[in-house]
Amino acid sequence: MKDKKIIKIYLYTRYERFWHWLQSFMIICLIVTGLEIHGTYKLFGFQTAVNIHNFIGLSWLILFAFFVFWLFTTGEWKQYIPTTKKLFSVILYYSWGIFQGKPHPIQKSKGAKHNPLQRLAYLGISAMLLPVQMVTGLLYYLYNDMLGILPLSILAVIHTLIALFLLNFLVVHLYMTTTGHSLFSHITGMITGWEEIYETTEIADWETQATRKN
């Protein structure tokens, strides 16, 4: 392994990175203010927390539409097609191989940015948790204008549960960023767009030509 050279490929486009960091900022703000509204602690004051939460929540709805548009116009949605191929070996790697210095069974490439485990996790979040969170959030926000669709008690409880699941994801996700070649290499990749991979990975000519900057 050691003799293999590490090279960088341009994996995350500008919009993708913008959306990723904006999304993370918004999710963190929503969790922080949401938990205050839930009564878990006092921070901004209830009214301010509600205002921030509503504003970011509504902004999120608009921005998520752009994300979906981007996803389908660029064909990036294919990155999220779930597969069981090598899923088990990824799980095995994180639960055992990583401690033995074994290589990651999957190398990132332009056509497959996510390993099978990531695909499953991100699909679950983008297609299940986030839509339910958006719908319950919007109904919660419009509760007074559309009475009787769902009682607030049910909306609020679902909204809270998914918020905590997203917080769970955030914890794991943050930790997983440290499992790259170095502690910060994945994070660096998401900031610059250039992800480190081993040279052995075959990269098609068109990939490097189209994306190489300098």
């Binding site: 009564g39 008690s153 409880v157 809270t160 549960l161 905590l164 917080l167 769970n168």
Partner: peptide
């Protein structure tokens, strides 16, 4: 009525926080 900030479902809170602290 459900009063945000006052009310919560204990079960849901426990499940949610268990998942967070478990992670």
């Amino acid at each position: 009525l459900y009063l945000p900030g006052r009310d919560k479902s204990n079960l849901i809170d426990i499940i949610g926080w268990l998942s967070v602290f478990g992670a």
